[in-house]
Design a protein around this nucleic acid. Structure first.
Lengths: 205, 205
DNA sequence: GAGATCCTTAGACCACCGGTCGAACCGATG
DNA sequence: CATCGGTTCGACCGGTGGTCTAAGGATCTC
């Protein structure tokens, strides 16, 4: 988390720093991003940046949080489908995936930022950010999983951790297919359909 | 590839360099590994190392190649199952996965090296190594895929690239489950069984 | 044996990295 | 006007991967 001071900075200055950071982190990834370039682009000095943030990871984590919140807001609410049947459960999942893909497609910068983030599990220097993300994402995922299981849409004969791992891996495949495939919305939604269908086969009862 | 000179170095000196590199790369990963530490540990100088290798990536790539070949040799031959029925196809796959997991379990250093390698798709400074790996792995994977399809063990209504992506993702789940799970061989082979069963559900016709 | 010609080695040096730190600046307050 | 705390700055630190030159050392020719 940035120091509270940061939020009492003028909106323009906050924007300058965050957009420079977004540009740098999304084009180079966390590891290869240069704080010095961010500082230069933002018209700030190193001392200032360290006055408002704990360091590189802190800046990255804050940027990530803000951007993900924007994306979630953009993709619309995700109603955890309670007491539904398997088909509607899976169609809700698929539908939300399509909306997320569209939101990502609308902002390639955010897409690259997230891609780098996703592919950096366990990387040194990102421990805090990953703990944070886990702490906010896991309860939500567990909720969805439980809903799927009461809807008899997800099997219960396999450890939850394994189901989550498979789900995360398949999410990566969606990203990969979007990254390497067509940008036509229709083609993308059928790709998502195909992949979610594979996920469903894998983890339905 | 290292310069040909490297191979005419005394075996002891080659060993010193490669084992220092293995130690460093497997404990810190490619990005955070330090060439200086490798040099010091190997009792060599920077000039020498650059005399035999193109740089960090070249050393890493060579080490990876050697280690993977050792592992493949250790896990035994993988007969691509031609003209079989679905059940035997999948049992051959599962069997080979179990053997690979055992080989990995036998050498934690190699396991960590491979884990770091797998999680660094698209990372800057590894482009050549990744191209190399792709060039050697893809034809083999395509062969297995085709064998599975003629055995009616793998569906044909989905692009091959997607099937490969799902397969790779599920392989990552195997690694994850081995990493976070029990070290008991029996538990591991049942975990592999469960995960391969999920893969089978996802990509069988 | 002397000299010349390589291959090999050592480590100083380069630009850059993330992070630290003390000095300077500046508006408000006494 | 002096002081004081919040803010800004950039020189500096130890480290990185990579470059380069000069010296060593073996081998060959005369």
């Amino acid at each position: 988390m940035p120091r509270p001071r940061f939020h009492s900075l003028s909106a323009a200055r906050q924007e300058a720093i965050l957009s420079a950071a977004l540009e740098e982190f999304s084009t180079h990834g966390f590891v290869d991003a240069s704080l010095n370039r961010i500082i230069t682009a933002a018209g700030a000095s190193k001392g200032s940046l360290y006055y408002y943030f704990d360091g590189k990871e802190d800046l990255y984590g804050h940027l990530l949080r803000v951007q993900v919140e924007l994306m979630i807001a953009d993709a619309g609410p995700f109603p955890v489908p309670a007491n539904s049947d398997p088909d509607t459960f899976w169609s809700v999942i698929e539908n939300h995936c399509v909306r997320l893909v569209q939101a990502l497609e609308a902002s390639p910068q955010l897409a690259r930022l997230l891609r780098d983030w996703m592919s950096s599990t366990g990387r040194k220097g990102l421990e805090r950010t990953q703990q944070d993300a886990e702490r906010t994402a896991l309860p939500w995922l567990a909720q969805v999983l439980a809903a799927g299981q009461t809807a008899r849409a997800i099997r219960t004969d396999v450890p939850d951790a394994l189901l989550l791992a498979v789900g995360t891996a398949i999410a990566g495949v969606i990203d990969y297919s979007i990254l390497t495939g067509s940008t036509d919305p229709l083609a993308q939604s059928t790709a998502v359909h195909t992949i979610i269908e594979m996920l469903r086969r894998a983890i339905q009862p």
